[in-house]
Simulated assay, not measured.
Amino acid sequence: MTQTETTTPPILVDSPILVDSHCHLDFDDFAPELDEVVARAQRAGIARMVTICTRIRRFAKIRAIAERFPQVYCSVGTHPHQAGEERGIPAEEIVALANSFDKVVAIGECGLDYFYDNSPRDAQEEGFRAHIAAARETGLPLIVHTRDADEDTAAILEEEYAKGPFTGVLHCFSGGRALAMRAVDIGFYVSLSGIVTFKKSQDIRDIVADLPADRLLVETDAPFLAPPPHRGKRNEPAYVVHTHRVVAETRGLDEAESARLTTQNFLRLFNRVPAPEGFEAAA
Results as ranks from 00 to 15, higher is better:
154 A>P: 02
156 I>D: 00
148 D>R: 13
98 A>H: 04
145 H>G: 11
137 E>W: 01
79 H>R: 13
107 I>N: 06
84 G>M: 11
154 A>F: 07
109 E>A: 13
74 C>M: 14
88 G>S: 09
110 C>S: 13
154 A>S: 15
73 Y>K: 09
154 A>V: 05
161 Y>W: 15
73 Y>M: 11
163 K>Y: 06
105 V>A: 05
104 V>D: 07
107 I>W: 03
135 A>E: 05
160 E>Q: 15
97 L>D: 04
88 G>Q: 11
103 K>P: 14
74 C>E: 08
143 I>R: 05
162 A>C: 05
131 H>Y: 10
164 G>N: 12
159 E>N: 12
134 A>T: 07
78 T>E: 11
158 E>N: 11
159 E>V: 06
106 A>V: 08
85 E>Q: 13
79 H>T: 12
159 E>A: 15
110 C>N: 13
160 E>H: 04
84 G>W: 00
164 G>D: 12
120 P>R: 13
135 A>H: 04
92 E>I: 02
157 L>R: 02
133 A>F: 00
89 I>D: 03
102 D>V: 11
156 I>V: 15
113 D>N: 10
114 Y>N: 03
112 L>Y: 01
143 I>C: 08
90 P>C: 10
158 E>K: 15
95 V>Y: 05
94 I>L: 14
150 D>N: 14
149 A>G: 12
143 I>P: 01
145 H>V: 10
96 A>K: 15
110 C>G: 14
121 R>M: 06
140 L>Y: 07
102 D>C: 10
107 I>K: 04
144 V>W: 01
98 A>Q: 03
89 I>V: 14
141 P>H: 09
125 E>P: 00
132 I>K: 08
150 D>H: 07
109 E>V: 12
98 A>D: 07
133 A>R: 13
94 I>R: 00
149 A>D: 01
130 A>Y: 00
122 D>V: 10
124 Q>G: 07
127 G>I: 03
104 V>A: 07
74 C>D: 09
131 H>S: 07
120 P>M: 10
124 Q>A: 03
106 A>P: 01
92 E>P: 00
140 L>Q: 05
98 A>K: 05
144 V>T: 09
82 Q>E: 15
102 D>S: 14
73 Y>F: 15
98 A>W: 03
79 H>A: 10
103 K>H: 11
157 L>C: 14
136 R>V: 13
97 L>H: 12
102 D>Y: 08
96 A>I: 08
95 V>A: 04
139 G>F: 15
88 G>W: 03
106 A>H: 04
159 E>Q: 13
86 E>L: 08
88 G>Y: 09
159 E>T: 15
97 L>I: 15
120 P>C: 08
136 R>T: 15
131 H>P: 09
122 D>C: 02
94 I>Y: 03
123 A>M: 11
164 G>S: 09
131 H>L: 06
122 D>G: 05
101 F>I: 07
90 P>T: 11
109 E>H: 09
133 A>I: 02
148 D>L: 07
109 E>M: 12
